[in-house]
Write a protein that binds this DNA or RNA. Structure first.
Lengths: 245, 245
DNA sequence: AGCGTGATAAACGTCCGATGTCTCTATAGT
DNA sequence: ACTATAGAGACATCGGACGTTTATCACGCT
């Protein structure tokens, strides 16, 4: 397209962004493997031809992306680059989406979570199933506590998805089901007196998993996500109506 | 859990991270809607009790996350917060994953892309189908050009997923199918003389979509992702064997 | 009146130097 | 051998300064 990578390039790319890209490339190329230690900030800055302040901005960006781990008084290191870390930002992104796009997020969950649950039905261990049972008991006991319900709901789905053994999948779904989304769904559920029904849905999922039945797990998970989506839709629509209050 | 948000909190949270959180909260609460302009850096810094340098780091982080848009000589604004922007980082994250975790990414694609394709079969417009046909022709014509094939492959899948009308889903799958992943898959495909077979798989997907057959679309997409996964697995395994060279 | 031009001010980009504070480590003492 | 302490190294934060870019508006020309 444009004249790419001209050594005498214009100001098209800021120095800081350039430094970010260079560090990312060093990591991708294997020059900086996970756990590696980076040179001190002043030296790194000189190496890339910018001031320490600019380099600090670059490092801070990569630290917030969980690519670098800055230890005060010690040095800066490359993280493990585990998907759990690198995909952490998905949750933060979802938290900033507007109400109407949250419905899109819920549709993605409706597409992904049933499949994940059916896979979990095959891979789940007995210990995982027992943990689910415990969470389910806690859920029933806390049927009146808004906050606790959200916590147990989060734990339930996390346990199911984590049982697939796919950390990338787990991190993604955790992010898509961020606290913001769950809070809004449960607000609708409780105001609509539908908490009991939802707990029953969790029980159905549990029974399907305990039966090691992928198709049944798929179906019950789909039904459950669909319920959540419906309540989220109600909350979003209701908020528009109540905008005058 | 812990004593949360103690006003006289320790140094547990850096000033810069605190500023990032505050700005994020102002956006979440609606105090700073999309398109809003932020106060100048010095004023914002004073308001949150830190130096301009620290505030610049905070702003830079949010800019890299596509939450803020910094215009030199003008000011700093909140972006549209569209999922396409906020989920852009997924691709960057995937680019840094190691080979073995790339297989996890591919498993997520195997779970998600067939469902997305089946939905697209119902929602896709005639114009979208025509565009797919064109891409397919280009693909056949470029059967020997590594780079072009990757480009058309990307365009094909993007067009299919975008036809669902779900921008969040599209951004997510675009990120999961980052250039790095595609490049490795196609490296295996071409070295294994399997480019032709893969192009045929795209044709099958196209036919299923043209027939508006969700089940067939699901099946053909699953078959296709499975092929990609197999070749990625071969490349990863091969790299391990060739490690001595 | 309309429009282009140039001056002005505001805001971000970058740099420099200095100081505080934390962590690691090596040394010295018990 | 173990512990305590002092030193060096590294990040955290600050303050100020200057350059560059952009938006804005007054001015003058058509």
């Amino acid at each position: 397209m444009f004249g790419m990578c001209d050594p005498a390039e214009r100001d098209l790319v800021a120095l800081t962004d350039d430094a970010i890209a260079k560090i990312r490339l060093m990591i991708q190329s294997g020059e900086l493997p996970p756990g590696a230690r980076l040179p001190p900030e002043p030296q790194l800055a000189a190496q890339m031809g910018l001031s320490r302040g600019g380099m600090r901005e670059a490092v801070k960006v990569l630290e917030s992306a969980r690519v670098l781990d800055v230890r005060r008084g010690d040095g800066t290191y490359v993280t493990s680059l585990a998907p759990r870390l690198l995909l952490e930002g998905v949750g933060l992104a979802v938290d900033l989406l507007r109400d109407d796009t949250l419905l899109e997020v819920m549709e993605v969950r409706r597409m992904l979570e049933p499949v994940a649950t059916s896979v979990a039905a095959v891979r789940m261990s007995e210990a995982d199933l027992d943990e689910l049972s415990t969470i389910l008991d806690n859920m029933r006991a806390a049927a009146d506590d808004h906050e606790k319900l959200i916590g147990f709901d989060t734990a339930f789905h996390h346990t199911v998805v984590a049982a697939t053994g796919n950390e990338t999948l787990t991190s993604l779904l955790d992010g898509l089901s961020s606290r913001t989304v769950r809070a809004r769904v449960w607000r609708g559920l409780i105001e609509g007196r539908a908490a009991h029904k939802t707990i029953d849905e969790h029980h159905s999922i549990y029974l399907a998993l305990r039966s090691r039945d992928p198709l049944l797990a798929h179906a019950s998970a789909l039904l459950h996500v669909n319920t959540s989506e419906a309540w989220l839709r109600a909350v979003v629509a209701g908020r528009a109506d109540d905008a005058t209050s």
